[in-house]
């Protein structure tokens, strides 16, 4: 308890720490938001809750890490991971997801849970269980007497995340495929009646999701570290964000992603870093409780 109070008082004693915490939170939150957006896409369009989301992220990280080990410039890893994970996503869709898409909730949960375990073990067998990261040879910018540090590598990573998100949004808004995806999400049967090949849309959506995750992972490996079994923590955060923001609510996903990033950093500062993820899960509980209360009120008003 003393430690918590001490940590709180540090925040007021050195206000500049808040700047650092918020900045760190926003930067990590941008990557959470990216993975969460992919999850929301698949969830909304196909009603598949993909528990392997985080493992796609880690796979993307390993693709980029392996390539940089082969001598490729690390930044190139991001687009390549995007493409490779697109392919992997497509294969997984054809092999697994296409068979569970019409089934009930638990079938798809079980299938993607199995996928998550398999991906993690495959990565472990292929690359070993040690943590890996790519070190970019960029400087770090310092502000406020060196209290706030922004590694240029992190900045590049976040900028890449933002441009990827922007590209996906524009694509969904303007392209034919984007329209077809949105139409399928609204009403798959009606879309089929109107001549949209929904199977193709599903395959595309799932591949796009895993490609987004792959790119996110390739950025993460440049900024933080990855390990074959880290997928689950990204899956959890993606679920928290999507649940909080709701499906099809893109600004909500981004806001929730950044918000959770910041909340986690504050949690880590105040309660200790061991409770960083607990903060995310606690927020999920809060959101669910608030949602339930809201809905109860709605039902009552309908009576």
């Amino acid at each position: 308890m003393d430690q918590i109070l001490g940590n709180l008082s540090l925040l007021f004693e050195f206000p500049v720490v808040n700047v650092k915490i918020i900045l760190d939170g926003v930067m990590i939150g941008a990557l959470f938001a990216l993975a969460a957006y992919g999850l929301a896409l698949v969830w909304g369009v196909m009603n598949v809750k993909n528990l392997a989301q985080g493992d796609f992220v880690i796979t993307g990280g390993y693709v980029a890490w392996w390539l940089s080990g082969q001598g490729l410039p690390p930044l190139l890893g991001v687009p390549i991971a995007f493409v490779v994970l697109w392919g992997i996503g497509w294969v997984i869709y054809k092999l697994v997801i296409s068979r569970v898409i019409e089934r009930d909730l638990f079938t798809s949960l079980l299938a993607t849970f199995g996928l998550a375990i398999m991906i993690a073990q495959l990565l472990n067998l292929m690359f070993g269980s040690d943590t890996q990261s790519i070190q970019l040879k960029y400087d770090t910018l310092y502000f406020f007497d060196g209290f706030v540090d922004v590694p240029i590598a992190k900045l590049i990573g976040v900028l890449m995340a933002i441009s990827l998100a922007a590209a996906v949004i524009i694509f969904m808004k303007t392209s034919r495929m984007g329209q077809a995806i949105r139409a399928t999400a609204q009403d798959a049967r009606a879309a089929r009646v109107l001549g949209i090949d929904t199977d193709k849309v599903y395959a595309f959506t799932f591949s796009l999701n895993s490609a987004i995750c792959g790119a996110a992972g390739a950025i993460i490996v440049m900024v933080w570290v990855i390990q074959p079994f880290y997928g689950i923590s990204y899956s959890i955060r993606a679920f928290v964000i999507v649940t909080a923001a709701g499906l099809g609510n893109l600004p909500g996903v981004i806001a929730a992603g950044l918000g959770i990033g910041v909340a986690e950093q504050y949690g880590a500062h105040i309660f200790g870093i061991g409770y960083q993820q607990a903060v995310a899960v606690l927020l999920l509980l809060l959101v669910l409780m608030i949602r339930m209360l809201q809905q109860r009120r709605m039902r009552q008003s309908l009576k």
Binding site: I226, I232, A268, H269
Partner: peptide, 20 residues
């Protein structure tokens, strides 16, 4: 005196305290 989580990839919160 802090404990790190099992899936640690970011400990900047602790390091900020170290700085202070």
């Amino acid at each position: 005196d802090e404990q790190l989580p099992r899936d640690l990839s970011d400990m900047s919160a602790i390091l900020t305290k170290v700085k202070l």
